[in-house]
Amino acid sequence: MKFNSLRYILRETFHSIRRNPWLSVASVLTIMVSLVILGFSIFFMVNADNMATTFESELEIAVFTDKSVTPQQLGTLKLDIERMPQVSSVTIVSKEQALVEFGKTMKSSGNNLLDDLGGINPFPDRLTVKAADPQVVKDIAMRIQGFSGVENVVYGKDFIDKLLPFTRWLRWVGIGVIVAFAIASIVLISINIKMNIFSRRREIQIMKLVGATNGFIRWPFFIEGMFLGLVGGLLASATVGVTYDWLSGYVQNTLAFLPVVQNPMLFWQVLSGLLVSGMAIGAIGTAISLRQFLKI
């Protein structure tokens, strides 16, 4: 492209913004609001997923052994379980540890049951097994039940049966929310761009009639769309960033049991993603909307 044309295009872009300031403000606000909603829904989704993962990772299987099992046999049992696929970790909780833990719990509730036992340890050795995937907990528990030296296997059967559908639901809702808002923001932004271009269709028609090529007509609109998208994206990521930062701090301080994602890397990725999508939506939306007006 000739240098003169480039200069013309840049000048034309900013002339147009200056002469239609309200249209430009409306475009920026539309892009901003859409992206803010999108940004929040992404963080909602991330947190929903994180919450589901946290709940799931707390699932464990308690394997109680026979009283007759020697420490050596216990070690072998541990290795056998570890060798099973889908098992992520196995820890031994010896009867002594179990007793100490039990004592702690009792003391904190002011109970002297431990002293009443008078030195007898009623606990068996125990293994705590964690599965790599919550879906297979049931399966693993059943298979461990068949191992020799195992007296009883306990896992939160009812809890798993309720939790898994719930976390699945939570993830789908999160994805649904993102998809819905992404579509809504693209529609909103393209309607706005179309209005912007429609208000200048005469200008485009005249440009065509004096012999401007489509590329020449497209560029100023394109750069304008990109610029307004960038400004909208910038405002959106600032809004989302500041609000999320504040909100996540607040939730963590007041509702500590709710796991809130505070991952700086992810945080900046989402914010720069909003920025880039603002710019991309502005540019692509303009290019698509322009097509029908260029057919003269």
């Binding site: 492209m1 000739k2 003169n4 044309s5 200069r7 013309y8 005249i206 440009m207 004096v210 012999g211 401007a212 090529t213 020449f216």
Partner: peptide, 11 residues
């Protein structure tokens, strides 16, 4: 000027 700028003429 519009009709000329379209041709990429100098300002």
């Amino acid at each position: 000027a519009f009709a000329l700028e379209v041709l990429g003429m100098s300002t």
